[in-house]
């Protein structure tokens, strides 16, 4: 019986990491599921679900050589069989402002209290010496959209942030 594992590999970015890691997984008979592979700063981060017949120890022994080759740190978790999109986001929220500490903590705490369950969060910092912090969040509004809009209005007023909420109306056709 095969089990599912969540592999995390992190290291300084360089060409060939994705090809090297996924080829090693393929050669050992692993089947990949959903993955997030993205550069953060100058680092490359891989989080990938993989189905594999062997144990966590065997998986680790197979992958460690390629992780070493690319100077990646490897972490493996045993997980339940994944499901595709168990919940669909119904709201998308953008928050941005002059960069400072605390934007993510303030925004997500207020939104969590207003019923937001975050499914995806991405953020970026840019804009030169006066840098801008940009936060893009998708999730489900468990207490309704009006509750989220209210805390976003409060954040905009009290914390000098620009906030925008758009309902996600998924077309099925």
């Amino acid at each position: 019986m095969s089990s599912w594992y969540l592999l995390t590999l992190v290291g300084k970015d360089r060409p060939g990491i994705v090809a090297g890691v996924t080829t090693a997984l393929y050669k050992m008979g692993a089947n990949l599921g959903e993955a997030s592979m993205v550069q953060l700063g100058g680092n490359f981060t891989i989080m990938v679900l993989a189905q594999y017949k062997g144990t966590e120890k065997e998986l680790s022994e197979f992958i460690l050589p390629v992780a070493k080759k690319f100077d990646l740190r490897l972490h493996i978790d045993s997980v339940l069989e994944p499901k595709h999109q168990t919940s669909l986001p119904d709201v998308r929220i953008t928050v941005y402002g002059a960069d400072r500490s605390g934007i993510v903590a303030e925004a997500t705490t207020a939104l969590a209290n207003a019923g937001l369950n975050i499914l995806n969060l991405e953020s970026d910092v840019g804009g030169g010496p006066n840098s801008i912090y940009i936060l893009i969040i998708e999730g489900t509004a468990d207490k309704g959209i009006d509750a989220l809009q209210k805390v976003l209005d409060d954040l905009a007023r009290d914390k000098k942030l620009e906030t925008r909420l758009s309902p996600i109306d998924t077309l099925i056709g």
Binding site: H84, Q85, L88, P89, I168, D169, T170, L171, I172, G173
Partner: peptide, 13 residues
């Protein structure tokens, strides 16, 4: 830009 799903592509949007 908007979110789309499809009867012919179950599970994805």
């Amino acid at each position: 830009i908007g979110r789309e799903g499809c009867l012919s592509v179950p599970d994805y949007t």
